[in-house]
Nucleic acid binder design. Structure first.
Lengths: 195, 195, 195, 195
DNA sequence: TATGAATGAGCCTTCATTCAT
DNA sequence: GATGAATGAAGGCTCATTCAT
């Protein structure tokens, strides 16, 4: 549980195993073997198998949000931030295909992703998107009457489905290359006038 | 499968049980009790517990696509069709909250939804969306250079996330009431000029 | 249960099915299909699946013993009777390979064969063998101090193993052709002097 | 299989349970309770319930054949060896009545005994018998024209039926006391002249 | 800390048998 | 008598978790 090299080692092993076999088909002993430790050792760092998945996700998602926040800070306005956000969303997943498999496919089990322990991190990401939209509205770049909550979900959903389709299509193309097109459509959708 | 009345009875019971307890927490005997039959009877109509979930989804999704196709036929142009599609997507789920729970949450397990046996039906829905986009492009309503595949995924993703958030938020508002706003954003995103 | 063409039809189907798949791998419905009737019909003639096996065996064994008794009656002395008995034992099985498979392999399950409902018929066959041995002793052909019970079991065991090996060896030779050799060894074993 | 002590503990428990209740009436959990371990532990040493039976048999039979080989080595000629073999065959079973019950009754299910995984050990026992017969023929003690394969099966069958009858008769007498009579009949059967 | 043998709760599925038609 | 859809008991096996070392 405590931050530790061993915990990270376990999480990294879990990502590989979950990506390969799926969460339900993976045994704790598989993760242990992949990590090169005894299965009992895992329970010194995680209370349950489920907690591995949740922790995995929380850590990755928290890092993701932090990264996004940092990156967006450098962008001049909401439009640029949306473009950056899409590019980042895609490149993070593209850079780590095993993580992508786990996040887009395995993590959607039951209610673990949007509900569950990871809900805070997802909410933070939603908040980040919403804040960019608010900023755009304030700056007059986005429609004044834009329903922000709705638009936030739609933006996330659109990006998420792009990622899911890419993963399920065995990543046969470069996800990043679609970023501009995606951002363009999203921006037109929310813009106060033609962009 | 053979006796469609009994099979439907089982599927309907399964929807209620899965919606209440989740797929993995549901025992076959729970479905049987809910359907008012013996658990062995289920195996006269379905080979495995898994097949119940898959059949459930295929039937519902096939009906959904057929309904959408029929409804869209009556609309005059692509813009109207997109509006209709969003309204339909939302109203189908809103009318059957238990189905919504199953489709948006339980069905996303592992690879059963987009991959797996249900892939054909999902693909048919994607095709339907794509065909509307093509029609809009041909009619000059949507951008001539619109990347149809990308836009298709984004449209589906946006609607899907709206539905998921609504389900996870315990359906505390009327999903249908967001349809106009969603359609508006989608249409602006793909329109050839400000709509 | 009652003697009837249908009961015989079921038993004959059961022999074929048991010989092909083994008793435990055979379902009652398999027997029904092989017999060309509904599975429920079987229960009009037999109380349980087990009873099919037992009845099958009792009928075949009773017929076998009756046949043997009849045939031996025509033989002049104990030596000729032993020869006849061996030849008959082998030819009965050889003439009906599926019955042989069932009797030598499938029927030996648990305690159904020597113990169980078929015990009487087996005992009758043992008695028949014993009576021939007694006759031979009385006639001076067999050792006066021959332990009849022991010899009876040995004779049966020797013939039985010959049959079992022949069945397990996929009946690649003619069992009957070994009858003379078998009878010769048996007769020397019990004879009052070199035969 | 790995830890021979624990595996032996399980096998010994299985012999007691199978002898008492029969193989099919025994649950894996019964064996576990008898062995004083958890039922899951059994699966650390055996893949299936079936494998327990097969392993049980292979180990016992292998030990039996090894013992017989060793004992026969000390005997001066084929006649003495046959006598020793019969005595040994009977005393092994008599010394371990529960093993006898399992080997003579439970193990004959379907094709596990003569066919199946135990076939090698049974074949080794048959080979041992055959080699003694060959030796006796070479030494002139047994008939020169003795059909060895046939005689081997008959010898085994005769001993086996003696054992089976003894087990089924609830072991109401001492099997060993019949050894001399059995050996005498067998030897007369194969001898080159009156013995 | 680390190990890995041991635990034991949990459940899907089969199929002999029943019975309403 | 005949049917075959329906029943429901039964148990082998898995694997997350524990704990003695």
């Amino acid at each position: 549980m405590r931050d530790s090299a061993k915990a990270r080692q376990i999480i990294d092993a879990a990502i590989r195993v979950f990506a390969r076999d799926g969460y339900f088909n993976s045994r704790v002993s598989d993760i242990a073997r992949e990590a090169g430790i005894a299965s009992g050792t895992i329970y010194l760092y995680f209370r349950t198998k489920d907690e591995i998945l949740v922790t995995l996700f929380r850590e990755k998602m928290a890092g993701w949000v932090a990264l996004a926040r940092r990156e967006l800070r450098g962008e001049p306005d909401a439009v640029a931030k949306i473009r950056r956000l899409v590019a980042l969303h895609f490149s993070v997943l593209e850079r780590d295909p095993e993580l992508a498999e786990v996040v887009q496919v395995e993590l959607r089990q039951g209610q673990k992703f949007f509900r569950g322990a990871a809900a805070d991190e997802v909410a933070a990401y939603f908040d980040l998107i919403a804040s960019v939209l608010e900023e755009g509205i304030a700056a007059g770049q986005f429609r004044a009457d834009l329903p922000v909550k709705v638009a936030t979900k739609m933006l996330f959903g659109a990006m998420d489905q792009m990622a899911t389709s890419w993963v399920l299509g065995k990543r046969r193309y470069r996800l990043s290359e679609t970023a501009d097109a995606v951002a363009a459509i999203l921006l037109r959708g929310v813009a106060s006038h033609g962009v």
